[in-house]
Structure formats: structure tokens, C-alpha cells
Simulated assay, not measured.
Amino acid sequence: MQKSLKKSYKFAFKTAAYVTIVASVFMALFLHFFHELDWEFLIFPFACYVVCFAVIQYRVENFIYRRVKKIYDDLTLLESTNLRQQPITTDMKTLTEEIDKYARDKKIEIETLKVREEYRKEFLGNVSHELKTPLFTVQGYIETLLDGAMDDEKIRKKYLTRASKGVERLTYILKDLDMITKLEVGDLSLNYETFDIVELVQNVFDLFEMKSAKKKITLTFDTDYITPIFVHADKERIQQILSNLIVNSIKYGLERGTTEVSIENLIKNKVIVRVTDNGEGIANEHLSRLFERFYRVDKSGSRKEGGSGLGLSIVKHIIEAHNEKIYVESEPGVGSEFSFTLEKAK
């Protein structure tokens, strides 16, 4: 408790002086008219001043302190951690600054909670939609079969195949959700190893060669990498990142287009891997939300292409788990470039 402060002393000094002057004038007038005014009267102003100062200082500080303490107690009920860690002050300027800072912090906190609440509602809506679509599909095919369609061997096989694809999609979504949850809470461990990133990219090219061939999209490097480029990371997770980015470039790329991968030295111990396509591109207003769960630029078109809607969110989490950065640049009608950094092997 800080009771002795300059401002309260200044107030007491001035108030005591005013009271002393007024009291001394009245006393002088009283003695002049009713008694003799002698030298002993000179003691009165000093005694009056000291007594007034002590009483005023004590009363002011206790008066202010009780009310300030009530403010602190009220704020403590609102879990004001910062205020509880500080001594109670009777300095009005300091108190005002603390309350203003507290109010600003609470305003930011409330705005953040509102944003999170909106995100939560949107996220739950997206999860519901993503799970509902394959569930209803599976349910519809099964009910059709139970209603008698299973007696027809061709229809039975066709509907069971479609129902199986719906279940597969559900499994894919739940698997991706589980992975994101583990990445967010830090439960998914990374197995670091040294590997050739050029070779890994080529393996991913080979993996999606047939998929790209259907749209006549060429998967290529920007140049011939004759010597290996070794990086230190989780090889399986980096392959997952590359697969996701390359599959997206095929999905949203133009027919007879190109997906190009380049690997460049960024700084002494870093490389940057770029995946560039000449597809439809992404409008600028979508870029800031591109890595959110279930966020889709073209909701109808994206769902036709399949996928869980969690791919880019997983990519971002894996990159961040490696303590690296991911970037995106895109222009509608020109194409997109996703790039991420990796640590070079020593």
C-alpha cells in the first residue's frame, strides 16, 4: 500500500495552509475584539498548520485508499491478473492509466473472443457439412439396397462400391482431423533424418504421374538438379506436404498446363522449395484464410474435386512443427506459387 505520495502531500500542504490562514484570521479578530492580542498568538498558526496537515493527510489518503481498494477488488473479481500483481496506489494519474490499460486489454480480449466464436461457428458448420455429405450418400445407397435393389447383382455391386467410397471419404476426413489435432497439441512427433529433397520431389512426381496425365499437366523441375540437395526434416511429413501441394496444382491447374518445382538456397543453412502452377489462381481476399480448416475458395468446385478440405491446414501445421515458414502468392488467371523453407543438412 503506497500511502505517502507527492500529490497527496501537496494537496494536504495547500489545504492545511488555507485552513490555517482562515482560522488565524478569525482567531485574530476574536482576540482583537474580546481579548488582548499578544505575542502568544503567533504560536497558533504553526500549531494549527501542523495539526491540520496531519489530519487532512490522514483522512485524504484513507478516504482515497478505501475507494481505490474497492476498485481493485471489483477488478480482481474480473480476474485482472496484472492489477493483482501491483501494489494499490492512491495516485489518481497512475490509477487512471492502469484502468485505461486494463480496459484496452479487455476490449482486445473481447474482440478476440468474438472472432474465435465466429471461427468456431464456421468451423462446426463446415465439419457438419463435410461429414454430412458422405454420410447421407452412404445412407442413401444402403437404404436403396435394403429396399430391394440388392437383388440386382449389377446395382448391388455399383451401390456398394459408391457406399465404400463415401466411407473412405469419411475415414479420410477423420484421419486428417486427428492429425491436425495432434499437430496442434504437439502429440505428433517428427522423425528427423537427412535426405535428398530432389529425389523426394521426383518420387512425388512419379506417384501422381497418371493423375497429371489425365489433365495433360506436366510435372517438372525448373532446371536439371545434377547434385543432390540434402535437408534435415521428417521425410514422410515433407512428402505429405509436397503431395498435397502438387495434387492441388493438378486439381486446379489448367488442362495442358505445368506444375514446376524449384529448390533454391535461401541463406547459409536454409533452402526454399517452390511449387508453381499456371492454373486458375486465387483472388487476394482468400489468401489470408487459405490455410484455415475446411476453407474453400470455390466451395462448389472444390467439393467436386474431392479431398477433406484440410490439406493446406495440415501443410501449415507440419511446416510450423518444423519451425519453418510457408508462403503463398497467387494471381487469378495467372497461377499460384506455394513455397516453404527447410533446414539444410550439415
Results as ranks from 00 to 15, higher is better:
residue 40 E to A: 09
residue 40 E to L: 12
residue 40 E to W: 12
residue 44 F to V: 06
residue 45 P to E: 07
residue 45 P to I: 05
residue 45 P to M: 00
residue 46 F to P: 08
residue 46 F to L: 13
residue 47 A to Q: 15
residue 48 C to H: 09
residue 50 V to Q: 12
residue 50 V to M: 10
residue 50 V to R: 08
residue 51 V to P: 06
residue 53 F to T: 02
residue 55 V to K: 05
residue 56 I to R: 02
residue 57 Q to N: 15
residue 58 Y to T: 15
residue 60 V to I: 04
residue 61 E to Y: 06
residue 63 F to E: 05
residue 63 F to V: 00
residue 63 F to R: 00
residue 64 I to G: 01
residue 64 I to C: 03
residue 65 Y to W: 02
residue 66 R to C: 09
residue 67 R to P: 01
residue 67 R to G: 07
residue 68 V to D: 04
residue 70 K to W: 01
residue 71 I to G: 00
residue 73 D to T: 05
residue 73 D to K: 02
residue 74 D to R: 04
residue 74 D to C: 00
residue 74 D to N: 14
residue 79 E to H: 11
residue 81 T to I: 03
residue 83 L to K: 03
residue 86 Q to L: 13
residue 86 Q to Y: 07
residue 86 Q to P: 00
residue 87 P to E: 09
residue 88 I to V: 07
residue 89 T to D: 04
residue 90 T to V: 06
residue 91 D to P: 03
residue 91 D to L: 00
residue 93 K to T: 11
residue 93 K to C: 02
residue 94 T to C: 06
residue 94 T to P: 04
residue 98 E to Q: 14
residue 98 E to D: 13
residue 100 D to R: 05
residue 100 D to V: 09
residue 102 Y to L: 05
residue 103 A to Y: 11
residue 103 A to L: 05
residue 103 A to I: 04
residue 104 R to T: 13
residue 104 R to P: 00
residue 104 R to Y: 05
residue 106 K to D: 11
residue 106 K to I: 08
residue 106 K to H: 09
residue 108 I to H: 13
residue 108 I to K: 12
residue 109 E to N: 01
residue 111 E to R: 00
residue 112 T to Q: 13
residue 112 T to R: 08
residue 112 T to L: 07
residue 113 L to K: 11
residue 113 L to N: 14
residue 114 K to Y: 12
residue 114 K to L: 12
residue 115 V to I: 14
residue 117 E to Q: 15
residue 118 E to Y: 04
residue 119 Y to K: 15
residue 120 R to T: 15
residue 121 K to Q: 13
residue 123 F to T: 15
residue 123 F to Q: 14
residue 125 G to V: 05
residue 125 G to S: 10
residue 126 N to A: 14
residue 127 V to E: 07
residue 127 V to A: 08
residue 128 S to T: 13
residue 129 H to V: 05
residue 130 E to G: 00
residue 130 E to D: 15
residue 131 L to Q: 03
residue 132 K to E: 14
residue 133 T to S: 11
residue 135 L to I: 08
residue 135 L to Y: 09
residue 135 L to C: 09
residue 137 T to L: 07
residue 137 T to N: 15
residue 137 T to V: 00
residue 139 Q to A: 09
residue 142 I to K: 01
residue 142 I to D: 05
residue 144 T to I: 06
residue 146 L to E: 13
residue 146 L to G: 08
residue 146 L to D: 13
residue 150 M to G: 11
residue 151 D to S: 12
